[in-house]
Each structure stands twice: as structure tokens, then as C-alpha cells.
Amino acid sequence: MPARIAAFLVWAAVAACAAFWGLRVLVTPRPVPSQTEPVASAEGRRADVLRLFAVAATPSAAASASAPGLASRFKLIGVMAPKEGERGRDQGIALIAVDEKPPRAYRVGAPIDNALVLQSVAVRSATIGPAQGEPAVQLDLPPLPPPATGSLPAASGLLPAGPVAVPPPAAPDPGPGPSGPPRDLVNRR
């Protein structure tokens, strides 16, 4: 009896190992979607780790982080603009992320930063600048991905194989006439 229990345990362990490695080898992970973007560069991750352990950042990294370009501070996520022929450019809402913070909705004329306001919104863009001045930054939405195209596979198994015989159309019934009763009522012998 102990030999049977030992054999059962050995074979159970072998089956568990085979199932584990079979699932590891045979299952393929899902690919990363095409619209994903990396969260941070390697330098950004290194700076975060250094800050975690209270190590002072180098002056060049601090200077570049404190004075980014004006256009790189803003990211246009979406717009809601009137059609070209409707009203003026003073209508509309833009969804803008400032300094990698979560995006917020801004109406045309609303202040975005200290001296900057949302000046106008178009179908796929928005302009930011001083309240009474020329646009400082024009933000554009990224182009849409091309539509998925292809063809459907042929439907198989729905229709019988080979040509299908179609019965000829039936002749119209002449109905009762002077020649006698209808044909379907006549007894055939």
C-alpha cells in the first residue's frame, strides 16, 4: 500500500510539472497595443530612484527639468470645436494635460497657466498664448491610425456543394372557362 501512495505522489508531481511548463511554453502573451507610449525615459526613472534615496540631482539635470520648452509642457488630448461654418473661433473646449498632470477641460478664453489662455480651438488643434497677443503654442492632435481593412473569409458549409437546381416557374392557371371545370377538379383515371 505505501508503494502505491508513493507512486501516486511521484506521478502527481510529474503531472503538475508537465502542466506548469506546458502552460509556460505554449501560452503566448498578448502583444502591446500600437497606441501605447512609454511612461518615462530611463533618465526619468533613474532620477526618481535617486530622489527616493535622497540623493541630490546633478545641476544639469535640475536645470533641464526646471526649464522645459513651452510646447513640451502641454499635450492636447482632445477637442470639441464647432464646425467650420458655424459661429466663430471663440467657442469650443480643449482637453489639455499640463506638465504631465491629468488632463483638464478648458474653454476658449480660460486661463491655463499663469499668463497663458486657450485662444482658439479648431477641429484637430488648439492654440495657446497670452490673453491679448499672438499665439505662443499650437497644439495638434496626433493623426488617426489608418482604418483596418481586409476581406471576410468565404462562407463554407452554409450552402450545399455543387450546382443548385431551381424549379421552373409554374404556368398560370387559366381558371374556369367555357371549356369546363378547372383542371385540378377533373378526375384522372
Rank of each mutant, 00 (worst) to 15 (best):
A47F: 02
A13F: 07
P130F: 14
G129F: 03
L152I: 13
R87K: 11
G44E: 09
A81C: 10
D90N: 14
S72A: 15
A62E: 15
D48N: 04
V186M: 05
P167A: 13
P168G: 07
F8K: 04
R45Q: 04
L141M: 07
A16Q: 08
S64M: 14
A136E: 11
P145H: 06
A71M: 09
K101A: 15
L141W: 05
S156A: 13
A126W: 00
P68D: 06
L52V: 05
L139P: 00
R188S: 10
G92I: 02
T58V: 11
V108W: 02
P130V: 13
P169F: 09
Q35C: 08
A65S: 14
Q91L: 10
L185C: 06
A3D: 13
R4H: 15
A13W: 06
V137R: 00
E84L: 12
S66T: 15
I112C: 02
G157P: 00
P82Y: 06
K83F: 10
I128M: 02
T127V: 11
L23M: 12
R51D: 09
A56R: 11
P143A: 11
L152F: 12
A110P: 02
F74P: 00
T28F: 05
A110H: 12
Q91D: 13
G175A: 08
R45G: 01
F53I: 13
V137C: 04
V121E: 00
T127P: 01
Q119W: 01
G92R: 00
R73Y: 09
E84P: 03
E84R: 09
W21A: 09
P111G: 07
P169I: 08
F74L: 08
P111N: 07
V39P: 00
A15K: 05
A62F: 11
P167W: 08
V164Y: 06
E86I: 12
G162C: 04
A42V: 11
V121N: 00
D90H: 15
L50T: 02
I112H: 02
A131N: 05
V32I: 15
S179L: 14
V32H: 05
A16V: 12
L26Q: 03
A155K: 08
A170H: 08
